[in-house]
Design a protein around this nucleic acid. Structure first.
Lengths: 150, 150
DNA sequence: TTGCACTTTGGAATCATTCCAACTCATTCG
DNA sequence: CGAATGAGTTGGAATGATTCCAAAGTGCAA
C-alpha cells in the first residue's frame, strides 16, 4: 500500500501541474506517490499494479495519461526515450548518436576515447559495463542530406 | 536499387557469418548491402522497403532474421537497445542509467557536471542538444535491494 | 442549473516484433 | 540416384506495449 504524499510533494505536484493548467486528481496523487515510494524505474505496468493496491478502480489508460502528463510538466523522466522502431547501423567504431527531433534523423557523433574512458570511470565499484549508449536529443542546423560515405 | 557488395564487404560478411556457423545467402547479401549503402540508421521497415527493390519476394520476417543474425555476429549494431517497456523515474538530477543484464534492474549513476560538459563539447557546430541519455549495459555485483531513498 | 474544461475509463485499434509451421534448397549418406 | 538432414526463408497468426476514442464523470464559474 502506498503512503500518501507528503505536504511538500503534494505542493510540488500541484505547482507543476498548475503551470500547464492542469489539476491535482486522486489518480495523479497516487501515481506520483508510487513513483516516489520506490525508485526502481518501474514500467507502466508496474506503476499500474502498485497504484491499484490503493485505488482498485484505476485504469491502465489513466496511468499512461498521468505519466505522460508528469513527463510533460517536468515532474518525471522517461528512462527510454527511444520507444520507436529499432534502428540499425553498420558503424562499429565507438560513437554516440544525435537524434534530430525536427527531422527524426539520427546522426553519428564521433566519440573520443578519453570521453569513453572518463565515462567508464564514473561507475561505482562492482559495476562492469560492456556497452555504453549515448544519445543526444535536440535540433541540428544540418538538414542537408549528407554524403553516405562507405 | 542496391549495388552488389564489394568483394571486400562480401568477405567480411562471409567471415563473420562463418564464425558462428552460418552461411551467406542472397537475402543476407542484400540486407547487408542495404545497410552499407545508406548509413542513415534505417528501421527494419526501411531496410525491408529498400531491399525489396532488388528482391521483390523478400519477406519482412527474413529482414528481422538477417538483422538479428548480423547483430549476433557483430556486423551491425542496434541503435536502440532499449526496446522494452518504457520506464520512469522521478530523479530529475542529471544522471546516467546502468541496466544490469542479469537482473534487468536499472540503477541511477551520478553524472559529474564536468563529464556532462565534455560530452556537450563533442557535438559538431550546429548541433544543439537539450537532453543527453547515457546508459550503461552490463552486470553489477550489487544484487542486494538498495534502500529506496526518498 | 447549465456550460465548460479537464479527467477518467474500457475497449478497440495500431504498430513493432516475435512466433510458428510449412516450404525451399543444398548437402550428405546409403 | 533418392531419402534424410538442416539451415534458411516465408506468410500469417500471436503478442505486447502503447495510443486512440467516444462516453461518462467532476468540479467550477457564469
Amino acid at each position: 500500500m502506498i503512503q500518501k504524499l507528503s505536504e511538500h510533494d503534494r505542493e510540488k505536484l500541484q505547482e507543476s501541474l498548475a503551470t500547464s493548467g492542469q489539476k491535482v486528481t486522486p489518480q495523479r496523487e497516487i501515481v506520483f506517490a508510487v513513483l516516489l515510494a520506490k525508485r526502481d524505474h518501474p514500467t507502466v505496468e508496474d506503476v499500474f499494479q502498485r497504484a491499484r493496491e490503493s485505488m482498485p478502480g484505476l485504469s491502465l489508460a489513466t496511468v499512461y495519461n498521468c505519466l505522460e502528463t508528469f513527463v510533460g510538466c517536468g515532474l518525471v523522466r522517461q528512462v527510454n526515450h527511444e520507444r520507436e522502431s529499432t534502428r540499425y547501423c553498420p558503424n562499429l567504431a565507438p560513437h554516440a548518436h544525435f537524434r534530430d527531433e525536427a527531422t527524426g534523423r539520427v546522426h553519428d557523433i564521433e566519440l573520443p576515447p578519453e570521453i569513453l574512458q572518463s565515462l567508464r570511470s564514473i561507475l561505482p565499484p562492482g559495476f562492469n559495463s560492456e556497452t555504453i549508449e549515448i544519445s543526444f536529443h535536440g535540433r541540428s542546423q544540418d538538414h542537408a542530406p549528407r554524403p553516405s560515405s562507405n
